Simulated scan of single mutants.
Amino acid sequence: MYNLLDGLRIIEASSFVASPTAGLYCAQFGAEVIRVDQVGGGPDYHRWPVTEANDSLYWENLNRAKKSVALDLTQPEGRELLQALVQSVGQFITNFPADGFLSHATLAEGRQDLVTVRVMGWPDGTPALDYTVNNAVGYPMMTGIGPEPVNHVLPAWDLLSGAYAAFALLAAIRRREQTGLGSEVRVPLSDVAIGTVANLGGVAEVLHNNANRSRLGNTVYGLFGRDFVTKDGVRTMIVVVTHRQWANLIAALGLTDAVGAVEAERGVSFAKDDGLRFEHRDALFPLFEAAIGALDHAAMVTVFDAAGVVHSAYKTMLDAAHDSCLVGDNPIFSASDANPSGLAYPAAGAFGTIPQLQRADAKPAPRNGQHSEEILSEALGLSSGEIARLIDSGIIGIAK
């Protein structure tokens, strides 16, 4: 946790991954992010993984360091309170539909300089999820070895969209500071996905070739990279991204002469050409399979580390959670025992490190409605009697 955004208050009305991620990243850098949910929790409040008591570990980690206001958004009075909060604060992150009571046009009637960032599925408002967008841009047809598509489990487009939305919010706020103008920034998952494909050269590639890229399994496209198995059965990923790493790799494995023979036979030089190493992988991979397969993993690690070769053994997520480098001694993590679930475990804070500033510990997520009275009093000036009436009528929810 850092306080770079101290003094910035943001209303967030969202669910699932992308939009809450935008709020999370702002909160981790010191913004006061107020998440507004339905009384009792929104559609993601019990999303798996959950504890035996049905507390969502997903929810309490995507919503760390935020405050929670609970309103009955099925009732006009509850919706009006959310509108008033957004207009009072002036910064809004959401994945609610572009039309309706949280449309930017409606909200801006009461706050002309309002900044809204809206995470969407498709640009026309059609709903979409990370996993449906991913299959639309073609990646599942490039992974595995076929013929079936292979979906990955990481919600990459959600996470990228959330990060982009946080960036877009700050960019729009800066524009407002310079011009006094508000704006709505719409961030569709589909545009983040296909735009990323284009930024990586994929759209140009397939149009230029008029063909799809071949499926490569665990081979890295355009580089020398693949998984290999050591003598003692440890599967390890090895990737070469510089010419020095290539020279060090073949020297470490004693393959200089064997690789030279392939070069002579095929009339090529691999010394300074990533693409040639990739194109001639049919001749190179068997050499490396044999050399690595003759070494125990510990011996390979010693040799590779001394040579500066980039490698990593495959691990389970449980392995990673017990890894001292990744978690145990990693300063982005801090012990957390104040979680709504009641569980104690390492909690992640800001991913970025600022050497000039002291890092604060990760903060817990709120309980649904934990800050309803505080925020409605401060932001809207509601009296204690009015808040009590709204609680009694079920329009406002409070943590129990």
Rank of each mutant, 00 (worst) to 15 (best):
M141Q: 12
G254T: 04
D72P: 00
R367Q: 08
L380R: 07
C325K: 15
M141C: 08
E386Q: 11
A108S: 05
G381K: 06
A84H: 04
Q75H: 14
F333K: 15
S88H: 05
A365H: 05
E263M: 11
L102C: 06
F228T: 04
L5S: 05
S183D: 06
G394A: 00
L62I: 07
R176A: 08
C325I: 14
A168D: 03
T219W: 12
Y164S: 08
A53H: 14
P155R: 08
T179Q: 10
E177P: 08
D99Q: 10
A347I: 04
F29G: 02
G369T: 00
F96H: 13
Q370M: 13
A291S: 07
Q91I: 09
A320V: 15
F101W: 09
I173K: 05
I375G: 10
D44W: 14
I395S: 00
R174C: 06
L287H: 09
N330Q: 08
E373R: 15
G146V: 06
A344Y: 13
L4N: 10
R389Q: 13
L326D: 05
A65F: 03
E289C: 12
V89A: 10
A298C: 04
A22N: 03
W48K: 07
S19D: 04
L189E: 00
A271K: 12
P286A: 11
R9Y: 12
E32S: 06
A348I: 13
Y58M: 06
L8S: 03
A347P: 02
F96P: 05
S214K: 11
A193E: 03
A379V: 11
Q28K: 12
V229G: 06
L114A: 03
I396F: 03
